[in-house]
Design a protein around this nucleic acid. Structure first.
Length: 759
DNA sequence: ACCATGAGGATTTTT
DNA sequence: TCCTCATGGT
């Protein structure tokens, strides 16, 4: 690789000097398989790259990018490359840079939203915004929406503002401006027609505030491209090649946006989309799998390349995952083959446990053992359906002193203190940012309550000025009295002074002083709660991050688009995260707890989404399994506490859907008798590296061998006893699942193995 | 203006 | 169960 780098960078510099010379044969294509090569070298015309899990998708994408540059087909700023996450964009930028030998400048490489933001800054006037518009966060959106909803007297118990924001967002995801909403579309919220009207007002308010929300970045740009032919033509001239990552997750508006940019009057659409319909797990956020299924229809003459050689997982894991996903209909169909020569590997282990505590104990115990065998903790992940499921695991890992990190919990920029500090900075940069000003006007307490704020709003509207100007005005006219008066005077002085010194002292110093002088930092210093010091640390970190940027505006733009903070704790830690959060990652060992009906697949998804919902859950399961390189361990508990009450649970149907020859059931027999003291270790049966384990060793008997054949033992109408629910009568039998009417607990469905016949 | 109490709700969330 | 909110009392 290193040798190639110098060579390639020379070619690259030749390229940038407007002198595209054909690149001499280079080694960057050498270690690719034929399909990957095809995906890279098919540069002209529409191309869909169906890339299964672990088939080298990122590599293909980055190499293709570099290939287009190195063969002189385009200059760096003539390629549009879109990703979904900042992380993916960052990685792509780095890897393209590594291939070229120089960090490329002026690339149109970023998330959909970041690229739209960049475009929109150029054309803001077409939608009534100024070039320096602000981008709102969710808190701001809700606050604004509440204000607008106020006069409508909507019962916010039944119709929370969040719900309306959801409706609006879904409209935006589909590219629908208020004018494009038909009455038939507007039936989901409160009275018919209400949502549409508020949406319109909301959009107007945003323009008045010189602001837009996240969805607007795309919505405005789509509208501009739709209505301004010369703008569209400009981008057609720009973008000779388009690359799209995670195409299965694009929503309607992104699809429309891409199509506008890709379809030109003359010449082919050089758009290459990489995706995997089996990993589409964001339909609830507006993603349309249909986009990938209809690619050939959208782009006639499209070529399709399938990447099916998996370089990540063992054959056992691949086969298990393939068997599972085969239960979905309407797939484009891929067969993952192992591209590795080593091991067939261990089977996927399935462990039945009594409850979530035992589940956590077993997982933590297995991890201890792995660690004792020298496995790095950073190669271990526990992936769950929902965020709150991390809790028992955190507790257990904490007790055992095993270091872990929860990925994607409360994110850095979502913390209250960070949002506050950001609001201060926004007011500093833009005094007219009412939503930011409103956030901090009474933080710390300055004696400005809802009543005072109301007055200020009335005044601001009447004078047609921003909130902060209304404050200044009321200070002069002595309309503000009492404690609030001095406090607000001070606050306004802090902002004025800070603004004066911005150019001379530099933004970092000024921001620091502002947070100090406004008493904001003092507020946390005086706070006696245990989390206060941590909050101060976070603010310190925020100020440190500020030093990476040349200007305050640049920093604010970055933060509003890139809501994730660099994770610099690259230590050896176990990763706990949701299945959604794990997409795109891989680990040697993956624990998959909570595989129970109702939990995973989630009851709610099935209720709301029916069979489509179930299929998406199944894809989520597929994503989970395919994160594992060497080992996947599925767990299911017989009893789970949902909020306050215990519920008996039956194993997820997904477990049965994995072909049995790739599964090994463990531990259930022990658990059933609640012999928790000597809970079985996951790895006791054999060595971990384990060809041996799956081939020669006598295996722990399958659950079906151990458990009594329930349907024969427990007939309909039998009186039975259950550890948790006590006595009951069997009212239904379905193989080894029983429906039981318990005297105390009511009707439940339980595994036959967990009840015994009462005399 | 601020605090205390109770009802109600509770996935997934790349941007 | 536990956290967030809206409401009413001081």
């Amino acid at each position: 690789m290193m040798m190639g780098v110098t060579q390639l960078s020379d070619i690259f510099s030749g390229l940038t000097s407007q002198d595209p010379a054909p690149a001499p044969a280079s080694d960057y294509l050498d270690r690719l398989n034929p399909e990957q090569r095809l995906a890279i070298e098919t540069t002209e015309g529409p191309l869909l790259i169906l890339a299964g899990a672990g088939t080298g998708k990122t590599r293909v994408l980055t190499t293709r990018f570099a290939h287009i540059l190195l063969t002189g087909r385009a200059r760096p700023n003539q390629i549009l490359a879109v990703t979904f996450t900042n992380k993916a964009a960052r990685e792509m930028r780095e890897r393209v840079g590594a291939l070229l030998g120089t960090p490329p400048e002026g690339l149109w490489l970023g998330t959909f939203h970041a690229i739209c933001a960049r475009m929109l800054r150029r054309h803001a006037e077409y939608v009534g915004l100024r070039q320096n518009f602000t981008i709102l966060d969710t808190d701001d959106q809700i606050r604004l929406l509440k204000q607008i909803m106020e006069p409508y007297r909507i019962d916010t118990k039944r119709w929370p503002p969040q719900g309306l924001l959801g409706v609006i967002q879904r409209w935006k995801d589909r590219g629908l401006t208020p004018a494009r909403i038909t009455p038939a579309e507007d039936t989901d919220y409160a009275g018919n027609g209400i949502a549409r009207r508020i949406y319109g007002e909301y959009q107007d308010r945003l323009v008045a505030l010189n602001a837009c929300d996240f969805g607007d970045l795309m919505l405005h740009m789509l509208e501009i491209l739709r209505t301004q032919p010369d703008v569209l033509a400009q981008y057609h001239r720009y973008f000779r090649y388009i690359l799209v990552d995670e195409y299965q997750d694009t929503n309607t508006i992104q699809h429309l946006w891409l199509r506008l940019l890709a379809k030109r009057d003359q010449g082919p659409s050089n758009i290459a989309c990489v995706g995997d319909d089996d990993q589409s797990i964001y339909s609830w956020r507006g993603a349309e799998v249909e986009n990938i299924l209809r690619f050939e229809h959208d782009y006639p003459g499209a070529k399709i390349v399938r990447l099916e050689r998996n370089y990540r997982s063992t054959e056992q894991i691949l086969a298990a995952a393939a068997g599972l996903i085969a239960h979905n209909d309407g797939r484009l169909g891929k067969t993952l083959r192992s591209g590795r020569e080593d091991a067939t590997g261990e089977r996927v282990q399935v462990i039945g446990v009594w409850d979530s505590d035992e589940e956590a104990r077993i997982v933590a115990g297995a991890i201890e053992q792995l660690r004792a065998d020298g496995h790095p903790l950073s190669e271990i992940a526990i992936l769950m359906r929902a965020g709150f499921q991390t809790r028992p695991f955190e507790e257990r890992l904490m007790t055992l002193g095993l270091p872990y990190r929860v990925v994607g919990g409360l994110r850095f920029y979502e913390r209250a203190e960070i949002r506050d500090a950001m609001a201060y900075m926004r007011v500093l940069a833009q005094p007219a940012d009412d939503l930011a000003f409103e956030r901090i006007i009474n933080v710390p307490r300055r004696g400005v309550g809802t009543a005072a704020l109301q007055k200020l709003y009335v005044q601001a509207r009447a004078l047609g000025v921003p909130l902060s100007a209304a404050v200044a005005h009321q200070l002069e006219t002595n309309a503000i009295k009492g404690k609030a008066r001095e406090a607000l005077r001070e606050l306004m002085d802090v902002f004025d002074h800070a603004r004066d010194r911005l150019s001379s002292d530099g933004h970092v110093v000024v921001v620091e002083r502002m947070l100090e002088d406004s008493q904001y930092l003092a507020m946390w210093r005086n706070d006696k709660s245990p989390e206060a010091p941590g909050r101060l640390d976070n603010i310190r970190e925020l100020i440190r991050a500020l030093t990476d940027f040349g200007s305050l505006a640049g920093f604010l733009e970055h933060v509003s688009l890139v809501m994730d903070a660099e994770d610099n704790s690259g230590n050896d830690k176990i990763s706990l995260m949701t299945l959604h959060g794990a997409k795109g990652l891989e680990f040697d060992t993956v624990f998959l707890p909570g595989w129970e009906e109702g939990v995973f697949p989630s009851q709610r998804t099935m209720d709301e989404g029916g069979n489509k919902g179930l299929e998406e859950e199944r894809r989520l399961a597929y994503v989970g399994l395919t994160r594992a390189r060497k080992r996947a361990i599925i767990l299911h508990a017989a009893n789970r506490r949902i909020y306050a009450n215990w519920q008996s649970a039956i194993p997820s149907r997904f477990i049965e859907e994995i072909p049995s020859e790739h599964v090994e059931h463990r531990g259930q027999a022990m658990t059933e008798r609640r012999q928790l003291a000597n809970a079985p270790s996951v790895f006791t049966a054999g060595p971990i590296h384990a060809r041996a384990a799956s081939r020669n060793e006598p295996r722990i008997p399958r659950v079906t061998d151990v458990l009594p054949k329930p349907s024969t033992n427990i007939p309909l109408g039998a009186r039975v006893f259950h550890q948790k629910f006590g006595y009951g009568v069997v009212i239904g039998v379905d193989d080894d699942r029983l429906a039981i009417n318990f005297e105390k607990a009511g009707e439940k469905r339980v595994m036959a193995g967990f009840v015994e016949l009462a005399s």
